[in-house]
């Protein structure tokens, strides 16, 4: 028996990643149950009522509307104990990633995060994940059960199917005492939000945008306009190199809309997008490991010998990104 552990979103629905996790686990071919945690769980359970789960179990209440270690860990633990599964899969959301290792410890199981592949091999589940920050990939299994796995996006297409009546069973749980309360979120204003995980295109800016150009001038203001116009016109997600975001911390006037949250690479993020366009970036390995899950890749750099030229991009345009992006924006604006 496997258990798929999900949580609802703020609006009571299940995320796309949850539906992908559902599909990836169904594909293993073993009987499974679904556990859902959230402030309201009924409509989420009904939305996947026809997925073939043996049982739907829920833990519901206002305390579970917030992502908090003590309550989420207790909920996951209770659902796992109620089912007694071999395998537990969860979407690799910040919420499950926060608690899953601790839960594994509590129930005497083992855990793997950032799983990018899950198949049956010789009748046993086998997982794939990257080590050394996307520098090498391993395929492995574990003998301990339950085995808890947090699945990244892209393993399976999101489950689709008819809604129905899930007849979910509520699992009772004494809400653990927590000294933590979630008081809110901080996000840039909607029109200034540059990180868009669902965008088709990742647009990466490198330190070159702030460097002295061929005419001897630093053109940060111009860079800012070009980048923001492009983001607005293309609805792409903004990534950056470490060098560019670090400038902010050193008190140099830089692009104010960039923070470490935008950093892609070894010590940044590893986003998933169908396409990526790099500009004014040298394509060094600590940066490009963050491109592991970017499909088609193009780069614009003045340096024909930069890292992108060495098998890291499909096309490297050796050109001035200021000139090219200005024209790109004109064309996109038409």
């Amino acid at each position: 028996m496997n258990l798929i552990l999900l949580h609802t979103e703020a609006d009571g629905t299940l995320s796309k990643l949850s539906l992908e996790t559902l599909a990836a686990t169904i594909a293993l071919g073993a009987p499974f149950s679904v556990g859902i945690v959230g402030e309201n769980t009924a409509s989420a359970a009904d939305s996947i009522a026809t997925c073939g789960a043996g049982k739907f179990l829920t833990i519901t209440g206002p305390e579970f509307g917030q992502a908090r270690y003590a309550t989420d860990a207790a909920a996951a633990e209770a659902l796992i104990r109620a089912v007694g599964p071999d395998l537990v899969t969860t979407p690799a959301t910040s919420r499950w990633n926060r608690v899953l290792p601790g839960v594994a410890h509590r129930i005497g199981g083992k855990v793997d995060s950032h799983v990018t592949g899950l198949v049956m091999a010789d009748g046993k589940p086998q997982a794939t994940r990257w080590f050394y920050r996307q520098r090498m990939e391993a395929v492995f299994s574990r003998s301990t059960r339950p085995w808890l796995l947090a699945l990244e996006g892209g393993i399976a297409a999101a489950w689709t199917g008819a809604a129905g009546t899930a007849n979910a069973e509520a699992v009772s749980l004494t809400v653990p005492v927590s000294r933590t309360s979630v008081i809110g979120f901080e996000a840039p204003a909607a029109d200034q939000q540059t990180i868009r995980p669902d965008a088709d295109l990742l647009f990466v800016t490198g330190a070159g945008w702030t460097k002295k150009q061929s005419d001897g001038l630093v053109k940060t203001a111009e860079a800012e306009t070009l980048i923001l116009d492009f983001l607005r016109l293309s609805r792409s997600s903004l990534g950056s190199t470490k060098s560019l975001v670090d400038l902010g911390g050193e008190g140099v006037a830089v692009l104010p809309f960039l923070s470490h949250m935008n950093q892609v690479g070894q010590t940044g993020s590893t986003p998933r997008h169908a396409k990526g366009l790099s500009t004014c970036c040298h394509g060094e390995e600590p940066h490009t490991v963050g491109w592991r899950f970017i499909g088609e890749r193009r780069a614009i750099s003045l340096d024909a010998n930069c890292g992108w030229s060495r098998g890291k991009a499909d096309i490297l345009y050796v050109a001035d990104a200021f000139a090219v992006m200005e024209k790109v924006n004109v064309l996109l604006g038409r």
């Binding site: 091999a121 086998q126 080590f131 520098r135 090498m136 990939e137 391993a138 395929v139 492995f140 299994s141 592991r292 890749r297 024909a304 992108w308 030229s309 060495r310 098998g311 890291k312 991009a313 499909d314 096309i315 490297l316 345009y317 050796v318 050109a319």
Partner: peptide, 15 residues
């Protein structure tokens, strides 16, 4: 079962 380096290097077209 295996540990490997990403094999996929792209053929970069330099324009």
């Amino acid at each position: 079962a295996s540990v490997s380096l990403p094999s996929q290097t792209r053929t970069t077209q330099v324009v």
